[in-house]
Amino acid sequence: MTADRGVDRPDSQRRDLPVAGGAEADLAAASAQLSPAGPQALIDDEVVLAPAPRLRTVRQLLHRPKFLIGAILFGVVVLLAVFAPLVSRYGPDSPDYFQLNRNPTSAHIMGTDYLGRDMWARLVWGGRTSLPAGCLIVIMSFGLGVPWGIIAGFGNRLLDDILMRLIDVLLALPGLVLAMSIVAILGPSIRSVIIALGIAGIPGYARVARASTLTTKNLDYVLAARTLGSGSLSIMRVHVLRNIVSPLVILATLNLSGAILAAAALSFLGIGTQLPAADWGTMLSSGFNYMFESTAQVVFPALIITVTVLGINLMGDALGEVLNPQLN
């Protein structure tokens, strides 16, 4: 047993990969599993070795071209957004009235928009709106949906019914329409879009969290914790949440591309990011209005959105294949 752990240790320090959140959480889950179960866990090999399959997952992922291509595509976009001031010569809002609607030239490698602003600069700066917006949406949906589902699954029948009927109400509207109605209430802005899409994303997490909680809450270690006198809140936080969190983190990773797209779509429709701020969605919609003047205004925003989403989806696809090998 000790030998096994010694072998594992160097690997566990190399977990700085995109799934690191899941891996760390799993480790925490495994240790949480260890403590209440006590000596029983030391006898049961599967429990002690719980992190091992996760390591294999990471290794398998690294051997998949699909995952590597996805990680490179997404990584490049993220790096460009992070280092936006270094990679662009022009500011995102500096117009050049003698260079309106240009296709790519040596001065503007991706051309200019209808105010003569450099497309490349606006694209890399726009990533600073679109990418964090997607992350904030996922974080908000996760942060609200997971506790919602755990409380519904853990609480009594009445509470469960009330909470899940509310979820049904959210699901009674198409996601984009729900988000649009919320934006109508709060007023068009990127902040409203993040709140609206964050709320629209709650049902997915709440349902998965509730289902996992229902199976977890009757397991021996939860009963043991209750016997030892733990309160409901601490059981939900320590024993339930930590054990169900890793599939939810995977779900969040998979939802990231959808969130980025939805925010860009609402900006595209004119009710998200307001001009003159740069955002991939608003860039595409103004480019569409001026596409008779220059095609570059449509092509490049479309390209960067597609590359980002393709990158995330390829990583997600590879993750799904590694976790459910029988599906392929």
Binding site: A265, F288, V299
Partner: peptide, 18 residues
């Protein structure tokens, strides 16, 4: 199918229009 699944409507619509 992977490509078609990844391209959102607003990108597809604008590019197809173009």
């Amino acid at each position: 199918a992977v490509l078609g699944f990844s391209i959102p409507e607003f990108v597809l619509g604008t590019v197809a229009g173009l």
